[in-house]
């Protein structure tokens, strides 16, 4: 089985309101895609995404793995951490279905994604 990784530009999501953005993400994830968002989700958007995901959980879709590097909010915790380490507060968000993305390991400056198409 192939794993599809889709990169979404900030321009693609810029014109969408919160719900449209979340719905687009959920729809793509349920199709089995791993998404890389050029413009990272805010903490508020992440909780909305978790909430929306929980409403979709089923025996075939157990949920998502998500990881964000950087922050759109300069006052956010990640923004502060990255600033402290001399980095920029821009970043990206990676989201995938948890049956493909088994784990994400991260620190303020890097993120590793462990994906597998095989059954556990």
């Amino acid at each position: 089985m192939q794993i599809q990784i889709e990169f979404l530009s900030s321009a693609l999501l810029a014109g969408k309101d919160g719900n449209e953005k979340i719905n687009l993400i959920i729809s793509s994830i349920k199709d089995g895609k791993i998404l890389v968002l050029e413009n990272p989700l805010t903490n508020m958007e992440e909780t909305k995404l978790i909430e929306a995901t929980m409403k979709k959980v089923s025996s075939k879709f157990p949920g998502i793995e998500i990881g964000t590097l950087g922050s759109t909010s300069p006052d956010g915790i990640r923004g502060q951490l990255i600033k402290m380490l001399g980095g920029k507060t821009s970043g990206l968000t990676v989201i995938g279905p948890s049956h493909l993305v088994r784990a994400m390991k991260r620190d303020p400056q890097s993120m590793s994604i462990f994906a597998s198409a095989g059954r556990r």
Binding site: T42, N43, M44, E46, T47, I50, T68, S71, S73, D75, G76, I77, R78
Partner: peptide, 10 residues
């Protein structure tokens, strides 16, 4: 953890 703390902070 990051999301929850970030939300509370916001």
């Amino acid at each position: 953890n990051i999301t929850v703390i970030g939300n509370l902070e916001a």
